[in-house]
């Protein structure tokens, strides 16, 4: 490839990295979902069994991992809307770059709104 090349339209840019993040967050949430359905199913076993397992969600390490999970949910959901707009909105492809930064801004804003309260709950 020529050194004068300014790169490709896609590779290494917002289009690629938004896709990588969408995929990583999606896979992570899928595996959490499998665990979460199983732990919730314990309410059908006994109150004590459910309470023992749900206590692990209140530990500092898992409590912090929940922050990552919430961040993943926020990004994946909002970027999913961006993908849908790229597909269905006539100007979607034109504004995909700007929409990515809107997605990041809203993700960060909602995360910053959520995180302090959750951290206080986990560590108190």
């Amino acid at each position: 490839m020529s050194l004068l090349s300014s790169g490709t339209l896609y590779r290494g840019k917002v289009g690629m990295w938004s896709w990588v993040l969408h995929r990583i967050t999606g896979v992570a949430m899928f595996f959490f979902l499998l665990v979460h359905v199983l732990d919730t199913a314990l309410v059908r076993v006994s109150p004590a069994a459910y309470d023992v397992v749900i206590a692990s969600y209140k530990t500092p390490i898992i409590g912090l991992a929940e922050l990552g999970l919430v961040a993943a949910v926020l990004y994946h959901g909002l970027n999913g809307l961006r993908i849908t707009l790229i597909d269905f909105w006539s100007k979607g492809a034109k504004y995909q770059n700007q929409m990515f930064w809107v997605v990041m801004a809203v993700t960060v804003a909602l995360f910053v709104g959520f995180a302090p309260g959750h951290i206080i709950n986990v560590f108190s």
Binding site: T40, P47, D51, I54, Y57, K58, N121
Partner: peptide
């Protein structure tokens, strides 16, 4: 209490 408030009684 957020996450700390979740137990069987909460789900029920």
């Amino acid at each position: 209490g957020g996450i700390k408030a979740i137990d069987f009684a909460f789900v029920a």
